[in-house]
């Protein structure tokens, strides 16, 4: 799982990779506009700046989940004129401003498709395969 940041026009701004080990996590925007990610697995809260820079990690008691994380759930969808929702026609996550609705632009294709676990493994396997093929063909000559 990853977190991506979009502006009010649906434009991709940044991506946040909290922890490659996965597990359940929750996100909250803190009052200074930074992003906080609470990991249930590690009982930690990681704080990121809006450009994706990691700022700090703090540990929390597992019986004492931060209260503000409970408040910011799927119901927090609106700020000013911008409303974020699933478009019923395209079933894509979209931003609505008045009567216009626009899907969020695809962000970070490289991060999503190449730099994930299987992408790295696949690229490595492809490289080894090419080396084997070229070695075997040279032996035949």
């Amino acid at each position: 799982d990853r977190v991506q940041l979009y502006d009010c026009n649906g434009k991709f701004k940044a991506a946040f990779q909290p922890d490659s080990a996965g597990g359940v996590f929750k996100i909250a925007a803190s009052p200074d506009q930074s992003l906080e990610i609470y990991s249930v697995r590690t009982n930690t809260v990681d704080t990121f700046a809006l450009d994706g820079t990691f700022l700090r990690r703090r540990s929390v008691d597992d019986r004492d989940m931060p209260f503000d994380f409970l408040k910011s759930g799927p119901s927090v969808k609106k700020a000013g004129l911008c409303e974020f929702e699933i478009d019923p026609i395209s079933s894509q996550f979209s931003v609505r401003k008045g009567t216009s609705i626009k899907p969020l632009e695809p962000g970070d294709w490289i991060l999503e498709n190449l730099l994930n676990y299987w992408g790295i493994g696949g690229t490595g396997a492809l490289g080894i395969g090419l080396m084997l093929v070229s070695t075997l063909r040279r032996d035949k000559l």
């Binding site: 977190v3 502006d7 506009q33 609106k78 700020a79 911008c82 931003v95």
Partner: peptide, 14 residues
């Protein structure tokens, strides 16, 4: 999960 900031940016967990 979706979190909208006061400035109108949105964090989307995917």
């Amino acid at each position: 999960q979706v979190v909208v900031t006061e400035s109108g940016d949105v964090f989307v967990k995917i």
